[in-house]
Design a binder for these strands. Structure first.
Ligand SMILES: [Mg+2]
Length: 367
DNA sequence: TCTGGGGTCCTAGGACCC
DNA sequence: TCTGGGGTCCTAGGACCC
């Protein structure tokens, strides 16, 4: 039988740092911009399990994290290191499986052929031991013939565990879990489902297709089939890789601004940087979008398809400045909020002639 | 406490075509 | 001539994931 094993590194950034500073193994460690430092506008990127006992989680504003856990050891992020180690992890994993698909910087899905669940279990123990002995890093592993079930199982196995769900056990495994355990059902969907009396995945499987369609939209039938233990290909199989859809850069300003010149200066730099990134990756772009987040945290975007694909910073810079100018003009006339964050994205990416996409798959940074 | 940066996909309305 | 319907593309906004 073909199983999908989902390997998810535990507290990945923190584990990478503790590896180099073993005296911190049991300490409340937080990777993120220190709240007393220059980048006070930030969030926790990764928290050790000791820090989580104080209510510190990824994406928590650093000010609140410091308040909840004053004794925390703060370590600034080193993305170059995390990326390099991620490559080493993949190098160890790939030869153990028929196929390995990187899902993020700290997750990978592997296809393995195994006669039964006990063989998968043995593979998972050996794999955990391999990563622990070679790289001194902990991970959790979930496995199922269905991709999304393997991922959910890896979440339930954390930290450091293994959870194998044979196909016939799928429905029973999922039934008691909250709907929010399903990737793709976030806080908003969970709230709306709760308002319809749907709290667990068992509730989801018993709900009427019409109700689910209203709350979850087009994906409803796939979620319902999953809840009944028989996911279709949308959730059961690993997604195909068709190359990146877009590339983007974001900058949150140290303090909000109404100065158009400041916004333009940032955008010009960002356009240069983004054009350089695309050149390295071998893509041309045929769409440009500028997105501005205002001081009240709402955002507005303005974008445009270009008549032809471009490379280099010139077209990107002029488009970006024009789009931002139009957004800012409208904002001045309507609400006149200050700018908090500037984002620049290019889409409709076209491979440059003669340029083959790297076999490593797209860059997949995360934090 | 005050909310990062980098991605993917879905929805909805209007334009346009058949 | 009028009406309806479906498909696709574009744009803006939003949910969601790590
Ligand atoms: Mg992880």
């Amino acid at each position: 039988m073909r199983y999908i094993a989902y390997v998810d590194m535990d507290a990945y950034y923190v584990s990478c740092e503790i590896r180099d500073r073993p005296e911190l193994a049991e300490a409340p460690v937080i990777v993120g911009p220190a709240p007393t430092g220059p980048e006070s506008r930030g969030v926790v990127l990764s928290a050790s399990y000791a820090a989580r006992k104080f209510g510190v989680r990824s994406a928590l504003p650093v000010g609140l994290a410091a308040q909840r856990c004053p004794q925390a050891v703060w370590i600034p992020p080193d993305f170059e290191k995390y990326g390099r180690i991620a490559g080493e992890i993949r190098g160890l994993l790939a030869p153990t499986a028929d196929r390995m698909v990187p899902m993020s910087i700290d997750e990978a899905a592997l296809e393995i052929a195994a006669p039964g669940p006990s063989d998968v279990e043995a593979w998972a123990r050996a794999t955990q031991e391999l990563i622990r002995s070679k790289l001194r890093l902990p991970c959790s592993i979930g496995a199922s013939p269905f991709a999304v079930v393997a991922k959910i199982a890896s979440d339930r196995a954390k930290p450091g565990g293994i959870r194998v769900v044979p196909p016939e056990a799928t429905r029973g495994f999922l039934a008691p879990l909250p709907v929010s355990a399903i990737p793709g059902i976030g806080p908003k969907s969970a709230q709306r489902l709760e308002e319809s009396g749907i709290r667990t995945i068992a509730d989801l499987g018993a709900a009427s297709p019409d109700t689910l369609r209203r709350v979850l939209g087009q994906g409803a039938p796939a979620f319902r089939a999953l809840a009944r233990g028989t996911p279709g290909p949308e959730l059961g199989e690993l997604p195909e890789d068709h190359g990146p859809r877009q590339r983007s850069l974001d900058r949150t300003l140290g303090s909000d601004t109404r100065a158009a010149g400041e916004v333009r200066d940032h955008l010009s730099e960002m356009a240069e940087e983004l054009a350089g990134l695309l050149a390295e990756e071998g893509f041309r772009y045929q769409a440009v979008t500028v997105r501005l987040r205002w001081s009240d945290f709402t955002q507005a975007q303005h974008g445009r398809q270009l008549p032809a694909a471009h490379e280099g910073p010139a077209a990107l810079t002029s488009e970006a400045l024009r789009l931002a100018g139009e957004l800012l003009a409208r904002e001045r006339a309507e609400h006149d909020r200050a700018v908090r964050r500037i984002s620049l994205a290019v889409g409709a990416l076209v491979p440059r002639r003669g340029h083959q996409r790297s076999l490593d798959g797209p860059a997949q940074p995360r934090g």
